[in-house]
Design a protein around this nucleic acid. Structure first.
Lengths: 343, 343
DNA sequence: TTGGCTGACTATACCGATATACTAACCGCT
DNA sequence: AGCGGTTAGTATATCGGTATAGTCAGCCAA
């Protein structure tokens, strides 16, 4: 059996409370004489005492654990960009959590009834929700959630939800990319997204795309929006149908990479005949040839910010939900060029 | 405050123990009459009772949580393959853990004293160690660990360690790749690895590479082993120095990708002049052009196996440490071809 | 001498679920 | 009636810290 406070107390010849004060409770340690404190510390050292964190947290009615509700597995087949995106975000989440003394548990929503059970079973002090949110089931879960929750990439204020949110500035990101392409002379633009009608972020990006095209006098219809399924078959058929556009913005890097590679297979010159812009600007962009121009978002910082909001909410310092929108950048690499500029 | 067992008990007019039996303890539920059980269930339903998992686990002296000790952040700059590799592994770990009713917490070793504290503070029922292990500090930590621990990709039996391990068959993987290259007529082979003297896995793969080269009468010296640092500068200088080999095996896909892309930048034809084999065969390989031939290992299964070993150890079903070696495959793609075969 | 005060420590209860031991009622059987 | 056995419950202690209240000696001032 493990060494407990009581064991240390017995060896030091004091009561458990004193040991607790000396070893854990900095604030109350002043109420113990130096000599006793030293005896306690020595006894603890000799016995190799380690605080049972589970017991402490239970008493304090907290878990010091944050749950990350994410959509699915990390490494989705053919959706590798999910892992890249998630990796950057996770780095921020973990870093932020550890800095605040919290640890992080992953809750894949697809596994059993993870979200429902995570939200009220006392396992978490708070939750970060990174997933699409517009299904009724999801919204219901969000509404019933009994612990603080912060959303990443999902604004649910419109549904009457009372959770804080961390977002990126699609307006600036997509808008900047459209501007960049227009400056290069492009007038026939397409927008590519995964088929997932419930992903509000995609829909928002699409809306911004359309608006900015309109601003530059470019009309966009249904044929300019390319919805691509799991198996990416649609990318093939798009190119097979003949090149209808001179440039494309994809709503993530993985999708952009698919277009980039398939274009090459169809002997379409990128960027000579066809410019491509991705979204996320993960380091993956540099591993493609041509390297991929991509809209960047500060994923790591966003993750840290989400944790920050969450911790402050848990500690009662954030009575009202807040929203933080992070700026996007545009990392111009080789996959965008002046229209018709065969290199 | 949350609804507790006592609240339900009061409403149903029974003692808390009965409620516990009805709602949680399947085995003892038979000791309760149907009518009472129904009353209890209804009271729980009406009050919206949710079991406090933390309390239950504390009582049972368990946490139902597994800690994953991993080397560093997910998204290491310029080491993106780390995230891909880790993503596949994590999928297996999470899946396996959830299937067994455990949740998974990430413990980046670089953050504070994570490994030391994780090993004895009662937060975890068991640990999975995925990291290089040959530093003294690491070995010391492993030896002192007070909960069951399973190693991935590290065999520490040689250090007198008493932990189970999950490995991949480097012999078969590297050996098969060498064979493949020799069959294609290659006689001048190189092996590329990250600079990390403590990574036993790398050293093992290198040793296997050398042995299999020797088997085919190919001599290998220091100049045939390319050690590449964080910033990958060495890849550049390798090509700048003129092509000394006709084929290269890299100890992971990310490194292979770097060689593949830099070769292109130096106008070296892959695979015409230079064949490249990666390791891991993540879906990333299909996103490169040419697509990357790579040694595959069943990362997901390995993750699940590690959890399986761990859970069985925790439950006392695995008194002795075991070792499972998973077979490697070779996914032949476009980056390897007959020597000098300009396409 | 008494009361008040401080410093250093102890005693007790508690967080919420559950293992364990115990009780009370009832049945059947000799 | 008395005994053993079963059924359906209750009472209590416990996991390991820690909040809270309480104790008690020593000292000083009135």
């Amino acid at each position: 059996m493990a060494v407990t406070l009581r064991d240390v107390a017995a060896r030091a010849g004091v009561s458990p409370v004193v040991v607790s004060r000396v070893l854990h409770n900095k604030a109350q340690a002043i109420r113990v004489s130096d000599a006793t404190a030293e005896r306690v510390r020595q006894a603890a050292e000799e016995l190799g005492y380690r605080c049972n964190v589970a017991a402490r947290n239970f008493r304090a009615q907290q878990t010091m654990t944050i749950g990350i509700l994410h959509g699915s597995g990390f490494a989705r087949p053919k959706l590798n960009e999910g892992s890249r995106y998630f990796a950057c975000l996770m780095d921020g989440l973990i870093e932020g959590a550890f800095r605040n003394g919290y640890s992080v548990t992953l809750c894949p929503q697809l596994l059993s009834d993870a979200p429902e059970s995570a939200m009220g079973d006392g396992r978490f002090d708070g939750l970060v929700w990174y997933s699409s949110v517009s299904s009724d089931a999801n919204l219901g879960a969000l509404a019933r959630c009994s612990v603080p929750l912060v959303l990443i990439h999902s604004r649910t204020a419109q549904f009457g939800s009372r959770h804080s949110a961390v977002l990126c500035d699609n307006e600036q990101g997509i808008g900047g990319a459209v501007e960049h392409l227009v400056e290069l002379g492009h007038r026939r633009l397409a927008f590519a997204m995964d088929v997932s009608p419930l992903n509000l972020e995609s829909l928002d990006r699409l809306a911004v795309f359309r608006r900015h095209c309109a601003l530059h006098g470019i009309e966009t219809g249904d044929r300019d929006v390319l919805e691509v399924g799991w198996d990416r078959r649609e990318v093939d058929s798009y190119f097979r149908g003949g090149l209808r556009h001179t440039a494309l913005i994809a709503h993530n890097d993985g999708l952009a990479a698919e277009f980039l590679n398939r274009a090459k297979d169809f002997d379409i010159d990128v960027p000579g005949q066809f410019s491509i812009v991705g979204f996320d600007s993960t380091s993956f962009c540099d591993e493609l040839r041509p390297t991929l121009t991509s809209i960047s978002q500060p994923l790591r910082e966003m993750g840290e910010c989400a944790i920050d909001f969450l911790v402050r909410t848990i500690q009662g310092e954030l009575p009202e939900p807040v929203e933080q929108i992070f700026p996007c950048g545009l990392d111009i690499r080789e996959s965008t060029a002046i229209v018709g500029d065969r290199t």
